[in-house]
Amino acid sequence: MLQILGKTSSINVRKVLWTCTELGLSFEQEDWGAGFRSPDTAEFRALNPNAMVPVIRDGDFVLWESNSIIRYLAGRYHGESLYPADPYRRARCDQWIDWQASELNRAWSYAFLALVRHSAAHQDPQQIELSCANWSKHMAIVEKQLARTGAFIAGTAFSLADIPIALSINRWLETPLKHDDFPAITAYMTRLGEREGYRTYCRNGTP
């Protein structure tokens, strides 16, 4: 049985849970992270030296890093419809997965920690304003891409890339800041509402 270590409220754990739903995979989940068992232990660090969730155990195979995990699951469990074998289509999917991790996440980090987590170390008004503006700039990139495809982030079909992108959009929508009017994003999230994985795991880990 596939084991997923990490609490459902973690955006990166929800990537894995949603992917499992799309693939029809059964799994056992153990709650690790703030409010549950601490990953900063010798036991957990033996699995992930970074002491971060998620981690999966698939038999004797252990893997960490959420985007690596979802790619592995799609490759291991016949997820070609999510993660195409064709190198051109796969590269387009990878492009948006990597962009979400390297660019979009970096844009919203300060604003999210300030406005949602209320971190005392992230209360500089200028930095909050800058982060919000940068976040909106990146969301405009998503809006333009969705307007171009008229469907999903990497093209006309739902793919693995839609999972991290939709989770980031949800985080943007639920953060108390000024939200620009992005009709393609609104239509996209409505479209995704037809999917069980979205309904269960995209809204901060609650149905």
Score class of each variant (00 low, 15 high):
K144N: 14
L146I: 14
S10F: 08
I70G: 01
L113D: 03
A34K: 10
F27I: 02
E30K: 13
I11E: 01
C20A: 15
I185M: 10
A133W: 13
E174I: 07
L173M: 03
N204S: 12
G75T: 11
T190G: 09
L192V: 07
Q100P: 00
L173H: 01
L177T: 06
K15N: 12
A187H: 06
C132R: 13
Y188I: 11
R106Q: 14
S159H: 02
K178G: 03
A85F: 10
M139R: 12
R57F: 00
A46H: 04
N134F: 11
A74Q: 01
Q95T: 14
H118T: 06
P125W: 04
R76I: 14
T186Q: 12
A34P: 00
N48Q: 05
W18R: 11
G193I: 05
R45V: 08
N134V: 04
E80N: 15
D31R: 07
Y72G: 05
F112W: 15
L17I: 05
A114L: 00
W108E: 12
A107N: 15
S159V: 07
F61M: 06
Q127L: 08
H179L: 06
R90A: 09
M189D: 01
I165E: 00
Q127T: 13
R171W: 04
G155D: 11
V62P: 06
M1D: 09
G59M: 10
S159P: 01
A140V: 12
A85V: 14
F112D: 04
E174A: 08
Q95P: 06
S102T: 14
P49V: 04
C202D: 02
A51F: 08
N48S: 02
T200E: 11
D124F: 00
R148S: 15
R199S: 08
E65S: 00
N67H: 07
V142Y: 14
P164S: 06
R45K: 11
A85M: 10
Y201N: 12
L25V: 01
S131K: 15
A85I: 12
G197I: 14
Y83N: 03
A187Q: 09
D60K: 08
F27Q: 09
E80W: 13
D94R: 01
W172L: 07
F36T: 06
P176I: 07
